[in-house]
Nucleic acid binder design. Structure first.
Length: 399
DNA sequence: TCTGGGGTCCTAGGACCC
DNA sequence: TCTGGGGTCCTAGGACCC
């Protein structure tokens, strides 16, 4: 080490997780302020264009569709806080939700609108802090570490600025957790929802993280949680009290070791600002279960449409893929997948349809089908394949 | 009257090559 | 003829997340 050139001590990592509050529902309330304070849920299968809502922003409250009138398949994607008070929550089946709160107002999803607001809040963040990781339409991680002011009050000052600026630009609120890493920040953003800011330091592990249910760890889902419960473990602290070897014994080498690290609040994953897609897919659940033979024509038409949509998605975003796959969900909810890697990358609907059709022939179709999906994986950008021996066909024409 | 749609990553076995 | 690695690709299923 050269004398006088001691490198500055690295700043402590401060990572934020930002989560928009009841995002879809909040965007809808911007359009329909007359619904503020009422139980409102977003979900269902109907398209906005088909409903009484199309272009009628001044609709009186009494004329909005009600959850109790809904018939069909689907789940709640978002519920306002007043609706949550009735026990209605996201991912809940519509019919079950309708029993809990039939008077709730039901709005169909409008993804284009949510994406529009998503772009606005994300670009707002990027103007303030350049290292942002996209985690879906309503969530991001932000690296505060090197941002001017990012260390003040553990990140609270910057979090307040971001929260306020997003609100000024969109009228939408969010909750932010700031912690030494993504794992803890993700948990912290939930501490004080809605409109919350929570600052967590490494020293708070025992008091604020260990009492939480194990299921609160991002990566511990229903299966792992049930298994933990069966082993007598409920909280993160109880997990942390177990030997690493014990967790490995019960959950496997990789997952067990990760669980041990997570329970001790350790996570060194960086905030990743860019990533390439791995696959693109389209799937649909039918209004009623379809029979492979009796409903052949209907199934075939849907199948072709799915292939056309994936092809459109690929072309619009500038990708080609060469692993073509299908997904089926039967009436008993069992899932089957088949895929096939073809010789040449493609984004052509007819080629996708052809390969997917071959996949379909490899499945025994003795049950009614509930869902059909088409997936294209092993993606590449056509330009990056140009100098390889492979001939890329994005048009369906032979050359 | 159950349970959407769009993703990622991991595992594990078999084929195939060196 | 038998035995044995390692490495990569392909496929199917499953857990998990938003």
């Amino acid at each position: 080490m050269l004398a006088g050139l001691t490198p500055p001590a690295p700043l402590p990592r401060r990572i934020a997780h930002l989560d928009m509050d009841a995002f879809y529902a909040s965007v809808e309330l911007l359009r329909y302020p007359q619904l503020k304070g009422l139980p409102v849920v977003i979900g269902g299968g109907r398209r906005r264009a088909d409903s009484v809502l199309a272009q009628q922003e001044n609709l009186p409250v009494a004329e909005f569709p009600r959850l109790g009138d809904y018939v069909g398949r689907g789940v709640i994607t978002t519920a306002t806080y007043p609706a949550r008070a009735f026990g209605v929550g996201s991912a809940m089946g519509m019919m079950k939700a309708a029993k809990l709160c039939p008077q709730a107002i039901l709005l169909p999803v409008d993804f284009d609108e949510y994406r529009r607001f998503s772009r606005i809040f994300k670009s707002t963040i990027l103007e303030i802090a350049p290292l942002m990781e996209d985690r879906g339409v309503d969530e991001v991680y932000i690296d505060f570490t090197e941002v001017p002011g990012g260390q003040r009050e553990g990140g609270r000052v910057l979090a307040r600025l971001i929260q306020r600026t997003i609100f000024e630009r969109t009228g939408l609120t969010c909750s932010i957790g700031v912690a030494p890493n993504k794992l803890i920040a993700k948990m912290a953003s939930e501490f004080d929802k809605p409109k919350g800011i929570s600052i967590v330091h490494a020293a708070d592990l025992q008091s604020r993280i260990w009492p939480l249910p194990a299921r609160k760890i991002n990566g511990i889902g229903p299966k792992a949680d049930a298994k933990l419960q069966a082993l007598g473990i409920t909280t993160i602290g109880e997990m942390a009290a177990k030997e690493r070897a014990w967790l490995v014994e019960h959950f496997g080498r990789a997952y067990g070791a990760w669980m041990h690290e997570a329970s001790w609040g350790r996570d060194d994953r960086p905030v990743v600002t860019e990533s390439e897609p791995v696959s693109m897919s389209r799937e649909t659940t039918f209004d009623r279960d379809l029979h492979a033979v009796r409903d052949r024509a209907e199934l075939s038409a849907i199948f072709t449409q799915l292939c056309e949509k994936v092809a459109e998605d690929l072309q619009r975003k500038g990708y080609v893929g060469k692993t073509i796959g299908i997904k089926l969900r039967f009436d008993d909810f069992k899932i089957a997948t088949r895929d096939q890697t073809i010789a040449v990358h493609t984004a052509d609907a007819r080629q996708i349809r052809q390969a997917a059709g071959q996949c379909l022939k490899r499945v025994t179709l003795d049950r009614r089908l509930r869902l059909l999906g088409v997936r294209v994986g092993t993606l590449a950008r056509p330009g990056e394949l140009a100098d390889s021996a492979e001939m890329v066909d994005t048009t369906g024409q032979l050359f």
